[in-house]
């Protein structure tokens, strides 16, 4: 019963977190949310009888990918001389080539 409740929470939270990742104003927060999304995802893998995938997701999907994003964010910030504005979507003049 508890497990089913747990599944239920996961099912609801995963898309919500995914939505939050894309909707948060601050990109730094978005990356942090993405890492927690990865960790929740690995819980879902455990629930779906895929321990191998869970380990890989926690280590690669959440850990390394999160680190990659943070490192990129660090470089982006640095390249605008320690201004944090770049993190927000509003100041998008900074990244002007933005067609897909």
């Amino acid at each position: 019963m508890i497990l089913i409740l747990f599944d239920f929470v996961l099912i609801i939270t995963l898309p919500l977190l995914g939505w939050a990742v894309l909707a948060t104003e601050d990109i730094f927060k978005a990356v942090v949310l993405f890492v927690s999304f990865g960790l929740l995802m690995s819980l879902a893998w455990v629930r779906l009888n895929a321990p191998d995938v869970a380990l890989a997701e926690a280590a690669i999907g959440a850990g390394v990918t999160g680190a990659l994003f943070l490192s990129a964010l660090n470089k982006l910030e640095r390249s605008v001389k320690h201004e944090r504005r770049i993190n927000r979507d509003e100041e998008k003049e900074a990244i002007n080539e933005r067609e897909i």
């Binding site: 321990p51 191998d52 869970a54 690669i60 850990g63 390394v64 680190a67």
Partner: peptide, 16 residues
Amino acid sequence: AGGAFQGGALLGGAGI
């Protein structure tokens, strides 16, 4: 559960 990718990712984490 485990293997090259999980182990490698952990090594990568150590490197980072």
